[in-house]
Simulated scan of single mutants.
Amino acid sequence: MPINWFPGHMNSTRQAIKDRVKAGLDVVIELLDARLPGSSANPLLAALTTGRPSLKVLNKQDLADPPITGDWLDHYNAQPHTRAIGLDAGDKAPARALIKACRELAPLRGDMHKPLRVLICGIPNVGKSTLINTLVGKRATKTGDEPGITKIEQKIVLENGFYLFDTPGMLWPRIAIEQSGYHLAASGAIGRNAFDEDEVALELIATLKRRYPERLQERYGLAKLDERTPDDAVLEAIGLKRGAKVRGGGVQMHKAAEALLVDFRGGSLGRITLETPEEMTAWRQAAADAEAQKALALEAARLAEKEKRSGKRQSASGDA
């Protein structure tokens, strides 16, 4: 499912990050969705902030599968100049751990003469504004359940010598990893006009059948499921249980898809993680291989066209 969702304000966000890096930046906090820690990591942000210490925060960990969250924390903590912690943005005490972790990443900064300059970023709807409000103890930023609430950069003083620069949620112009596109859409990070909810719901069902079939059975009172059960049959059964019926006994599949996505985003299906570090590594490699093959095909087509034009010119010269 190709997804290209890059509203105008995201271009200004990209420029704001570039300007902040030039002005001086000590640590980059990237909020990730603990249910999709690989898909929610922004490669554009990594390119813009190369060389800066990074704190990866797996937000909404209370909605994610604990053992897999542990695997992701190990994965990120093994990377150079990187720390990773799990967080529930609604819990004030763990939120303060951000300040401690940032000071450990940049130990030579953090007083009035050399303030610690921290940029906090994340994909849309990852819970960043809620987290900041928890950190400062007041409503410092607008919050909502739609992507794109924050539109401009904000500077927040969390402590003496600790400056936090908040930026709007930002995706990247082209999501090359197909599975990431589905996961981001399912989480609510992408504007609803940019994808087909029915298709996303079916892909979510395929993942849940493989990893958490009992959650579907418990939530919707379904018969025992396995990977052989057709995805559309599961979605239809969900629609019947949720009252998405039409005259004649059919099901409004779109309403069934909406119900499933709302339940997933709100945590009604239980603690779920859609991807592992190993899966993400394999998907990323497959996407890179596909891009390389596409580039080779385009180059071959370009050379063939060049030879064709050259042959025509030689033919025309011979006729003359």
Rank of each mutant, 00 (worst) to 15 (best):
I3H: 02
I3V: 15
W5E: 03
G8F: 07
H9D: 03
D19L: 05
R20C: 00
L25Y: 02
I29F: 03
L32W: 01
D33M: 02
P37T: 06
S40N: 04
A41T: 03
L44G: 02
L45K: 02
G51T: 05
S54D: 06
L55C: 05
V57E: 01
L58C: 04
Q61A: 15
L63K: 06
D65A: 08
G70R: 12
W72E: 04
I85H: 08
L87I: 03
L87H: 07
D88L: 09
A95T: 00
C102E: 02
C102Q: 03
E104S: 15
A106D: 13
L108S: 10
R109C: 10
H113C: 12
V118R: 01
L119E: 01
I120H: 04
G122Q: 02
G122S: 07
G122T: 06
I123F: 10
I123E: 01
N125A: 09
I132G: 00
N133F: 10
T134L: 05
V136F: 06
A140M: 00
T141I: 05
E146R: 12
P147T: 13
K151L: 11
I152V: 14
I156Y: 08
V157P: 00
E159A: 06
G161C: 11
G161R: 00
F162H: 05
G169C: 07
W172V: 00
H183P: 05
H183I: 08
L184D: 13
S187L: 14
D198L: 13
A201M: 08
L204M: 10
L204G: 11
A206P: 05
R210T: 14
R219H: 10
R219Q: 15
L222R: 11
L225S: 03
L225Y: 03
L225C: 07
E227I: 15
I238H: 03
L240I: 09
R242W: 09
G243N: 07
V246Y: 12
V246E: 14
V246G: 13
G248T: 15
G250I: 15
H254T: 10
A257V: 05
A259E: 06
F264A: 04
R265A: 09
R265T: 09
S268F: 15
I272M: 05
L274R: 01
T276G: 13
E278H: 08
E279T: 10
T281C: 09
T281L: 09
A282R: 15
D289F: 03
E291W: 01
E299P: 09
A304Y: 10
K306P: 05
K308W: 09
S310I: 11
S310C: 09
S310F: 13
G311H: 09
S315G: 11
S315T: 11
S317I: 10
